[in-house]
Amino acid sequence: MDVFMKGLSKAKEGVVAAAEKTKQGVAEAAGKTKEGVLYVGSKTKEGVVHGVATVAEKTKEQVTNVGGAVVTGVTAVAQKTVEGAGSIAAATGFVKKDQLGKNEEGAPQEGILEDMPVDPDNEAYEMPSEEGYQDYEPEA
């Protein structure tokens, strides 16, 4: 019985440690998101679009440190934060509304985080759909 109880105690310690790591990862992701939003706020009209992409990228980098179902929630929060940063930029006159959601080359930025393969159960990952990809044929 002692062996059984000791095993359960060790398992509990492992769960607590994993929860603490997840909590730490979420806190880091939130900190990076805040950094990115402050970065966007300090940019001029020309830099705002690039700044919004930076927020998304920093958040995406930190999301990889967070495991399990938390990833889905962090990704949703990050996307809403990026959308909010863009709205703030438009409201303050840093950028025109028609410039939001495009990178410096004018290509749409939507789907940055949505296409990231995420499995809350950590069982399997699927690649994003290939609808947006084109076949590449090298020139002879």
Rank of each mutant, 00 (worst) to 15 (best):
G47N: 04
V55K: 02
K12R: 14
K12W: 06
T44R: 02
T22K: 00
I88N: 03
Y39M: 06
G93K: 05
P108D: 15
Y136N: 05
S9V: 09
K96H: 06
A69T: 08
V40P: 00
E126F: 04
Y133F: 15
K43V: 12
Y125A: 04
L38T: 02
V70L: 15
E105I: 01
D121M: 05
N122F: 03
E57R: 08
V40G: 00
G7P: 01
Q109V: 11
T33M: 15
Y125H: 09
K58T: 05
V63N: 01
D115S: 11
E105R: 10
Y133E: 10
T92C: 07
I88P: 02
V71L: 04
V66L: 13
D98R: 11
G14C: 13
K6F: 04
D2V: 01
T64N: 07
S9T: 04
K21G: 00
A27R: 08
K10A: 03
E13R: 12
V15Q: 00
Y125K: 09
V77L: 09
T54C: 14
K43F: 05
D119R: 03
K60T: 05
Y39V: 03
G106W: 09
G31D: 06
Y39H: 06
K60P: 01
V55H: 01
Y125N: 08
K43Q: 03
A69P: 04
T64H: 12
K6P: 00
G84W: 13
A29Q: 02
T44W: 15
D121E: 12
E110K: 06
A107Q: 04
Y136P: 13
V37G: 01
V15E: 00
S129N: 05
M127D: 04
V49E: 02
M1K: 00
T22G: 03
K60C: 11
E114C: 15
V71G: 01
M5Q: 01
Y136C: 08
K23C: 14
V16K: 14
Q79R: 13
T64E: 07
G67Q: 08
S87E: 12
E131R: 06
Q24E: 13
D121S: 08
E35H: 06
A69S: 03
T75C: 13
A27Q: 14
L113N: 02
Y39R: 07
G67K: 06
A107Y: 10
K60S: 04
Q62K: 09
Q24S: 12
K45H: 02
G106R: 05
L113C: 04
Q109A: 05
T92H: 03
K10M: 15
E114D: 13
A78G: 06
V66H: 03
A89H: 04
V70A: 05
G132L: 12
S42R: 11
A53N: 12
L38P: 00
E28R: 05
G31R: 15
E46R: 09
Q109K: 15
L113P: 06
V3W: 04
F94N: 04
K23R: 09
V55E: 00
P117M: 09
A11H: 00
G47V: 12
E83K: 13
Y133T: 07
E61T: 07
K21W: 13
L100D: 10
D135C: 08
G41F: 13
N122W: 06
L38M: 13
S42Q: 08
G7E: 02
N122V: 09
G41W: 06
M5S: 03
E13K: 14
Y133A: 06
G111M: 15
K34L: 10
A91T: 05
G86K: 14
A27G: 03
A85V: 15
G68T: 15
F4T: 00
G47W: 11
Q24H: 14
Q99I: 11
A85R: 03
M5G: 01
